[in-house]
Simulated scan of single mutants.
Amino acid sequence: MAIIKEFREFAVRGNMVDMAVGIIIGGAFTTIVKSLVSDIIMPPIGLLISDVDFADLFVVLKGAGDYATLADAQAAGAVTLNYGMFINNVISFLIVAWAVFFLVRGINRLKRKEEAAAPVEETPTPATPEDVLLLREIRDSLKRG
């Protein structure tokens, strides 16, 4: 029973809940970014470079035939190197990294503003130990002679 209690304390800790929320939001954000890349960004780029669909850029490594699309090649059982999908994923990553950069940048600016607005507290000097005080008194009395 002690391990269950320890796990419950671990699971409901504030950081753990925050992390779970972040993972869920991140999963939803990933879906949006994938749609942004494949449905909004890549079609105009493909149109600019001779009507190319990046998702269908591949090289057949093993398998006979000339395939028009990646789906056709995979349906035929061909082994393919899908560099177009890799390009899409790199662009997705860059968009997510860019968004996270701006999020962290905004949070850091807010923290700096809060730190600047907060009054600076002086740390109290620690009390001098009694034996040090006694040694100083002895030293001073020896100096006076």
Rank of each mutant, 00 (worst) to 15 (best):
A73T: 02
K111E: 03
L94F: 05
I107G: 07
M19A: 08
F102P: 00
N82V: 14
Q74M: 10
V17A: 05
F102S: 01
E6C: 14
S141W: 07
K62W: 10
A118L: 04
N108W: 07
G46L: 07
A20R: 06
V37A: 03
E115Y: 15
V100R: 00
T125Q: 09
M42G: 01
D140I: 00
L70G: 05
A117M: 07
A73G: 03
A116D: 03
I45K: 01
G65D: 01
E121I: 03
V79D: 11
D66F: 03
E130Y: 11
P126S: 14
E121K: 02
P43V: 01
I32A: 14
S92L: 03
T69S: 12
G14T: 14
A116P: 01
T123H: 14
V60I: 02
A28R: 07
D66P: 04
G26F: 00
Y67L: 08
V12R: 09
A99L: 06
A117R: 05
S35D: 07
K62M: 12
A116H: 02
E122S: 15
L70T: 06
V100Y: 01
R8I: 15
L70I: 05
E122V: 10
A76R: 04
A68C: 07
G145T: 08
V60P: 00
L48E: 15
P119S: 08
A78D: 05
S92D: 05
A64F: 13
F54A: 03
D53Y: 11
V104L: 11
T80A: 15
R109L: 10
V17S: 05
F54C: 01
L133W: 07
A97I: 06
L135N: 08
Y83M: 10
I91M: 05
V12W: 11
N89F: 15
L61Y: 10
R109G: 13
A97R: 02
G22M: 00
L134N: 11
E122R: 13
G14H: 12
F7N: 14
S50F: 11
D140M: 02
V12C: 08
L142A: 11
A97L: 05
I41Y: 03
A64E: 10
A68D: 14
E115L: 13
P119H: 06
T80E: 12
T31V: 13
R8D: 14
F7T: 15
L70K: 05
A55Q: 11
I49C: 01
A28L: 11
M1I: 14
G145H: 13
A64R: 15
T30A: 12
S38M: 10
I23G: 02
D131E: 13
R112L: 13
A75G: 11
T69P: 08
A127N: 09
K5L: 15
I49K: 00
A99T: 05
I3M: 14
E9F: 11
T123N: 08
F10I: 06
V120R: 14
I3E: 15
L142S: 13
G27N: 06
K62S: 12
V90F: 10
